[in-house]
Simulated assay, not measured.
Amino acid sequence: MHQAAAKLPAHAESRRLSALRSYGILDTPAEAVFEDITRIAAAVCGTPISVVNLIDADRQWFKSEIGLGVRETPLETSICAHAILEQDFLEVPDTTIDPRFASNPLVTGDPNLRFYAGALLKTPDGLPLGTVCVLDTVPRALTQVQIVTLQALARQVMAQLELRRMLVEAQALNQHRARVLATAGHDLKGPLRAALYALGKARAADETDRDARLESAAQDLAYINQKFGDMIAGATGKGGAAAPELRATDLAPVLEDAARVWARAARRKQIDLVVEGAPCVASSDAALLETLIGNLVSNAIKYTADGGRVSVSCSGRDASVDIVVADTGIGMDASRVEDYFSAFRQADAASEGLGIGLWIVRQAAEALDARVDVASALGAGTRVTVSLPRV
């Protein structure tokens, strides 16, 4: 007869549940960044099922899942409920010969699970919240590389959860720290997508090419980990994240670099991405301005249909220098423009991303002493003007 997993001692379970709920993640909609993580886990481990799983008081809830088709299941049959009792990682090569799972209804009946591996999601003080896990209907074992990758993905899930909680706290306490958190978190998406691409290609590659692609993916994941460390340091005032130093800045290289970063995304959609206009110099910070412009270009490409056009231009006026990012995209409801500049808001709720690109633009503009003006209408494209002070 199947027995559910034991629970932690009452005081530890109370602390664990309190920590889980402090992240505000339960019952939130599916999001691209977590969907990416389950896709990577399934691709690396070669399993039909992959889950980002959180253990609540009486259920296990899936922030993202592949291969199950449900968002939650009862705790009584949860294999992950056993995993959170482990130190870091649980692998069950064959559930039918493990006394903890042999009588589990998920093993004896649909979906006939035979293999499980889960890397623990842990808070900074070690409280277990759930797992990033992979499952299969045939017995198997993971390689050391697959285990290490699954553990790395679990750390990235916790990075996202910490980011969101810290962003809310920072927004209330300090706008500069919030800007650091959001910018660093937003920058994690690019390398995560690159890792997913490399791992997907590795599945079909020969052995030599596979090793190279896995190494590339590992470097991207290491970069994410480094960026998260930088974010923590900046948010706690322990390094980096100094207020920008405004100085005479040649804007041409900044605009060209921002366009170069997003050129590949534009080509995928056959969008004509052009940088035009006269050379300009303004009082600014090149790195932060590139983040600001990069987010505007990213949004323009995201919301412009295939075959459209996105332009970036610069021109001078008496007291300011104007950078204009214009597109032929879906446009914005003019009455809701301010809403789009709030954190975690998107013009299209079904689109990928965190929904904080325009919020970063607003925060960066404030730090640069710049003004942002938006001219847009639904179906008529968008024109965003960033006005920087002259030197």
Score class of each variant (00 low, 15 high):
Ala4Trp: 02
Ser298Asp: 02
Ser216Pro: 00
Gly234Tyr: 03
Asp98Glu: 12
Ala202Val: 02
Glu338Leu: 10
Asp110Pro: 02
Asp211Met: 11
Arg267Asp: 14
Ala102Leu: 05
Ala365Arg: 12
Ala300Trp: 07
Leu255Arg: 02
Gly185His: 15
Ala365Ser: 15
Val180Asp: 06
Ser315His: 13
Leu289Asp: 02
Val138Phe: 11
Val132Ser: 14
Val51Leu: 15
Pro111Asn: 04
Ala241Asp: 05
Ile25Gln: 08
Val70Glu: 13
Gly126Thr: 12
Leu85Tyr: 14
Leu358Ile: 04
Ala218Tyr: 05
Ala204Glu: 12
Gly229Ile: 00
Thr108Ala: 07
Ile323Met: 07
Gly69Tyr: 04
Tyr197Thr: 10
Ala212Ile: 09
His11Asp: 12
Ala184Val: 07
Ile25Arg: 00
Ala217Gln: 00
Ala305Cys: 15
Thr96Asp: 15
Cys280Gln: 15
Tyr223Cys: 03
Val134Leu: 13
Ala32Ile: 00
Pro191Met: 12
Leu85Cys: 15
Asn112Ser: 03
Ala83Phe: 11
Asp206Pro: 10
Leu121Lys: 14
Phe89Asn: 13
Gln156His: 13
Asp209Ile: 14
Gly67Ser: 02
Met166Ala: 15
Leu20Lys: 04
Ala365Gly: 03
Ala172Ile: 01
Glu86Met: 13
Thr73Leu: 15
Ala204Met: 04
Lys63Gly: 08
Arg317Phe: 07
Lys189Gly: 13
Val312Ala: 11
Ala182Glu: 08
Arg383Thr: 11
Gly307Ile: 08
Asn174His: 10
Thr73Gly: 13
Cys80Phe: 09
Val44Asn: 01
Ala300Ile: 01
Glu31Gly: 03
Thr131Leu: 07
Ala364Leu: 13
Asp56Tyr: 02
Val52Gln: 12
Val44Gln: 06
Ile330Trp: 06
Ile147Gly: 03
Asp56Glu: 01
Gly229Val: 05
Leu163Gln: 14
Asn295Trp: 07
Ile360Gly: 04
Gln160Trp: 10
Ala259Ile: 05
Gly331Phe: 09
Gln87Trp: 13
Ala287Tyr: 00
Gln219Asp: 12
Phe62Pro: 01
Ala222Asn: 04
Val321Trp: 05
Lys201Asn: 12
His2Lys: 02
Val107Asp: 13
His186Lys: 13
Gln60Phe: 08
Leu113Ser: 04
Gly237Met: 03
Met158Pro: 04
Lys63Phe: 03
Gln171Ser: 14
Leu292Ile: 07
Leu388Phe: 14
Leu8Asn: 11
Arg59Tyr: 06
Asp36Glu: 13
Phe341Arg: 15
Ala370Phe: 06
Ile360Asp: 08
Ser311Leu: 14
Ile25Tyr: 01
